[in-house]
Amino acid sequence: MLTPQRKKHILELLAAQGQVLSKPLSETFQVSEDTIRRDLRELAAEGLLQRVHGGALPASAAIATFAERKNLALSCKQRIARKAAELIMPGQVVLIDGGTTTGELVKCLPLTLRITVVTHSPGIALGLIEHPTIDVILLGGRLYKHSVVTLGATTLEALAKVQADLCFLGATGVHHEAGLTTGDYEESCFKRAMVARAAETVVLASSEKINSASPWAIGDISLVNTLVVSSDTDAALLTPFEAQGINVIRG
Rank of each mutant, 00 (worst) to 15 (best):
A67K: 13
S231T: 08
S22V: 11
F66M: 07
S75Q: 14
M194L: 15
E42W: 11
V31L: 03
G141L: 07
V248I: 06
L139I: 01
V174T: 12
I246G: 04
D34P: 00
I88R: 03
T181R: 14
D135H: 03
N71W: 05
P4M: 01
D184T: 12
A199L: 14
L109G: 01
I210M: 01
L2Q: 00
I10G: 02
Y144Q: 09
A178Y: 12
V20F: 12
T3L: 00
I218A: 02
V224I: 04
L43Q: 07
K107F: 01
A213H: 05
P122R: 05
R79S: 13
T116S: 11
G123H: 02
G47R: 11
G141E: 05
R114Q: 10
G179C: 10
L111I: 01
T35I: 07
K70R: 10
S60Q: 14
V228A: 01
I115E: 01
S147N: 07
G179F: 09
M89F: 07
V148Y: 06
G127A: 05
D234E: 15
A15H: 07
N247Q: 11
H53A: 15
H146D: 07
L139H: 02
P24M: 12
L13Q: 08
T112M: 00
A217C: 03
P24Y: 11
P240G: 12
A64V: 07
H53M: 14
V174P: 02
D220M: 00
D97V: 10
Y144G: 06
N225I: 00
L72I: 10
L13K: 06
V31S: 02
I124A: 00
E42Y: 12
Q163K: 13
V106P: 09
L74C: 11
S32P: 00
D234S: 14
C76S: 15
T133L: 05
V149Q: 07
S214W: 04
G152F: 08
Q244I: 12
H120W: 05
R142Y: 02
C108P: 00
L43S: 03
T150Y: 10
F241D: 06
A243G: 10
S207W: 12
R38G: 04
K83R: 14
A45C: 11
I96Q: 10
G55M: 14
V106Q: 06
R142F: 07
Y185H: 14
T119I: 06
G170E: 15
E86Y: 06
T100A: 07
S32D: 03
A196Y: 11
S230I: 09
R197I: 13
F241E: 05
T154H: 08
S147L: 06
G173Y: 14
T182A: 05
L169E: 04
E104D: 08
Q163R: 13
H175E: 05
R69T: 08
T119K: 04
Q17R: 09
A196E: 15
I80K: 05
L159G: 09
I63R: 06
R82V: 06
T101P: 10
G55A: 12
L57C: 01
H131T: 00
M89I: 02
G251V: 13
Q5K: 01
I88K: 01
V229C: 09
L111T: 03
R69M: 10
S26Q: 04
D165S: 15
T150K: 12
T239W: 09
T182R: 07
V149I: 13
S22P: 09
T201D: 06
S212V: 04
V94Y: 11
S22N: 06
V31P: 00
G152C: 12
R142S: 11
G251P: 12
T3P: 03
